[in-house]
């Protein structure tokens, strides 16, 4: 497939998903039957309800971490020297942390704080914040590498030879060339966040089941899955597949367009 075709397929998949999540939740005719935990609701209703929340949460977290990543990368490129070193090492450190471990530790801290009556954040916000804390390192590293690669390009050398300042180069030459790349990174982060959220929800540290996401839905139904109730899980898996493929195709297309 050409990048263009990939992008088109990815984009249409995502639009389709958006339409699905916006679909009125009172679709009662569902080929997968009724939910087991909430017998008055259909599987489709639960899955699509989860889709919306998952996408919103993942979009928010991906947006935040991407923004944080580009800011840090810019700061590193601008300041150079020890600041650059510190930011890079910190990003590498966070990149190497086992995500689940950090998320569980944060859930533990939140739970303790909550039990001691210190604070009681909204569960969606708390999960979003935890995911953001571990999520910024990857984009930051990617952007920094990209900025460095661009910085070695000939047009930068030419601009520098013409007497341009570093800030000027950064703002005038490098940033405009990063736009597509930033978007691509953002798009690739979204499914990653969705899967991370689904995993911690499965382990019981994520969202409560009354604020359903795709992950909590599968997580709270895993006993039924093991007993062969595939109808509960297949729609969710299908949605996850579409999300991953859609975002990945679009992201890759953008990435390829950037590199061309």
């Amino acid at each position: 497939m050409t990048p263009r075709a990939k992008g088109l397929v990815g984009l249409s998949l995502l639009l389709f998903l958006l339409a699905l999540s916006a679909l009125p939740r009172w679709v009662h005719a569902c080929p997968f039957g009724m939910d087991l935990e909430f017998p008055t609701r259909t599987v489709c209703e639960r899955a699509l309800g989860g889709l919306g929340r998952s996408m919103a949460l993942a979009g928010g977290v991906a947006g935040l971490t991407t923004a944080l990543g580009i800011l840090l990368a810019l700061a590193a490129a601008q300041a150079k020297g020890p600041v650059d070193f510190a930011i890079t090492r910190l990003s590498e450190f966070f990149f190497a942390l086992p995500d689940i471990l950090v998320l569980i530790t944060m859930a533990f801290l939140l739970k303790t704080a909550r039990d001691l009556g210190f604070m009681d954040p909204d569960p969606t916000l708390a999960v979003g914040a935890s995911l953001s804390v571990i999520g910024w390192a990857v984009p930051a590293l990617m952007f920094r590498a990209r900025l460095q690669a661009l910085g070695e390009a000939e047009f930068v050398a030419a601009s520098r030879a013409l007497g341009a300042g570093e800030t000027w180069i950064l703002v005038r030459h490098l940033l405009p060339r990063m736009k597509g790349f930033v978007l691509a990174v953002f798009l690739l982060r979204v499914p990653a966040v969705i899967f991370m959220e689904s995993t911690i929800s499965f382990l019981g540290f994520g969202l409560p089941p009354t604020t359903p996401s795709l992950g909590t839905y599968v997580g709270s139904n895993y006993r039924n899955l093991i007993l062969g109730e595939w109808r509960i899980v297949l729609p969710v898996w299908g949605l996850l597949l579409l999300i991953a493929v859609g975002f990945s195709l679009l992201g890759k297309a953008l990435m390829a367009g950037e590199e061309a």
Partner: peptide, 18 residues
């Protein structure tokens, strides 16, 4: 209680809601 009990509390809660 969302889990840890032997009763389908979510379904019962849904019933009360309706």
């Amino acid at each position: 209680h969302e889990n840890g009990t032997f009763l389908p509390e979510a379904a019962l809660a849904e019933g009360v809601r309706v």
